[in-house]
Simulated assay, not measured.
Amino acid sequence: MSSHIIIEAVSTKGQLKKFVELAYRLNADDPHWVPPLKSEVYALLSPKKNPFFEHATVQLFLACQDGKPVGRISAHIDHLALEQPVEKGLGAGTGNWGMLEAANEAVTTSLIERAEKWLKAQGMHRVIAPLSLSIWDEPGLLTTGHDHSPTVMMGHNKPEYQRWIEAEGYKSAKELITYDLPIVDGFSPLIDRIVKSGERNRKLKLRKVDKSHFDRDAKIIMNILNDAWSDNWGFVPLTDHEIAHVSVKLKPIVYEDLIMIAELEGKPVAFLMTLPDLNDRLKGMNGSLLPFNWAKLLWWLKFPKSPTMRVPLMGVIKEFQNSRIASQMAFMMIEYIRREAVSKYGAVRGELGWVLEDNQGMVAIADAIESKVNRVYTLYEKAI
């Protein structure tokens, strides 16, 4: 007979360490799980370092059995999300949980019940989960694509979590899709014609990000993003502090020729961000830069070579969405970055996403460049 599962609210440094370390132990046997740098995990969970805490209430929980950690979960309320329209996914009365790790179904049940109890006590009556922590971090549970490792800044979890979560009454609210595509040989003649047509437009200019003016260009990109995505399901605007924080976080893996800004008559109207897959280097480090992993990582950051590129973000301001010039800009940026990725970084494949399942514009772009779905992340909802 198994002993009782005890759920503790994390309040000490010792508990926080157990919360972080547990993921590395429970996923050690999964060849496709990529251990994140522990310093990044601690920063994510630190109110002093993560500006998400400026507009969120967060409580971490640790499950223990026989004195040993066997599971964890975060419960949180994003107060900016509460201000969004309910029909766009979040809104008033909607809380979240995330960062779930559990040794078995019984532990999962206990953790979810504890997170729901905490959310109800905070006045919430609905859950959208998992979010770890913000909608901008690692949203959704991996439900398709467990047979390969995630790319940079993407989540990965054991397949049995889906059954355990759905057994608690959670239903799919939205699916987030990633697409895989070979990039060495380029795209179809149709895409080439669209690109050449855009090049003939003298009002349209594409430029690379300028790292000597990185703060300026980062703010331009994030402002486009806030406008372009504002009508999307699940959207929560990034604050100025979050924009600055993301800029600092991404700067080490930003390469000028892999991020483009499109300007129309001198006005920035679209962007496309591509990142070399840092996860290729994080594998085998077990979340630590010691003793010599820091040197390996610094060398790679200086001379990055990666077979995989990820496109995490792309946006066109609302004024030009669903227009002919929007598709021209998108395909031009994709093609220009593809050339650089192949010739300078040794890339052979790209990964686009995540993309909302009903984002017709992005799905059409993914189909036009003949990409294939390779991962699906599910966001669940439940009334509590």
Rank of each mutant, 00 (worst) to 15 (best):
R338T: 04
G98L: 12
G284R: 05
P237G: 04
R310C: 03
T378M: 00
P237N: 04
L290S: 09
K267T: 10
Q321N: 04
K382E: 02
N157Y: 04
A368W: 03
S172Y: 06
K120M: 08
H146G: 01
E370G: 09
K382F: 11
N157I: 02
R338C: 09
A173M: 10
P276F: 05
E319K: 15
I334T: 06
L258W: 00
I317E: 10
R163T: 08
L352V: 07
D240E: 15
L282H: 06
P237V: 07
H32T: 03
L141A: 00
W33A: 04
I365Q: 08
N226A: 14
Q122G: 11
L272Y: 13
M285Y: 11
R349K: 15
V195L: 00
S132P: 02
Y179G: 00
L119G: 01
V34R: 00
Q328M: 15
L26W: 08
T308H: 15
T108V: 10
D280N: 08
N232D: 05
H146D: 04
A330H: 07
M309I: 15
V34P: 02
L250Q: 08
I334S: 06
A28Q: 14
I337G: 04
G361L: 05
I325F: 10
I165S: 00
K203A: 15
P307L: 03
A262E: 13
W233F: 12
E113N: 11
E160D: 11
